[in-house]
Amino acid sequence: MIQSRYLFISREGKVVKIARPKDHKYKSVLRLAGEDVLEVILYYRNKDRKPHKLLMVEFDRFHLDSQGNYKQTEEDRKRAIHNFLSFGMVDLFEGAEVEDKPLPIPVAPIIPTSAEKRLLYDYINEKLPNFSDDAPYVVESRIKSVEEKYEEFKSMAKRSKKPSK
Rank of each mutant, 00 (worst) to 15 (best):
M1E: 10
S4E: 10
R5V: 09
L7C: 04
F8G: 00
R11I: 06
G13K: 06
K14H: 12
V16Y: 00
A19M: 14
K22V: 14
K22Y: 15
S28M: 13
V29W: 12
L30M: 12
D36N: 14
Y44S: 09
K50G: 03
K50N: 08
M56I: 08
V57L: 05
D60H: 12
F62A: 04
F62N: 09
F62L: 06
S66F: 09
Q67F: 13
N69W: 05
E74I: 11
D76R: 09
S86E: 03
F87W: 00
F93Q: 10
E99C: 07
P104H: 02
I105H: 14
I105R: 10
P106R: 03
A108C: 02
P109E: 02
S114P: 07
K117G: 01
L119R: 14
L120W: 05
Y121W: 08
Y123M: 07
L128D: 02
N130E: 12
S132P: 00
S132N: 07
D133R: 12
D134H: 02
A135W: 03
A135G: 08
P136F: 08
V139S: 09
E140Q: 03
I143R: 01
S145I: 04
S155A: 10
M156A: 06
A157E: 08
A157G: 09
K162I: 14
K162V: 13
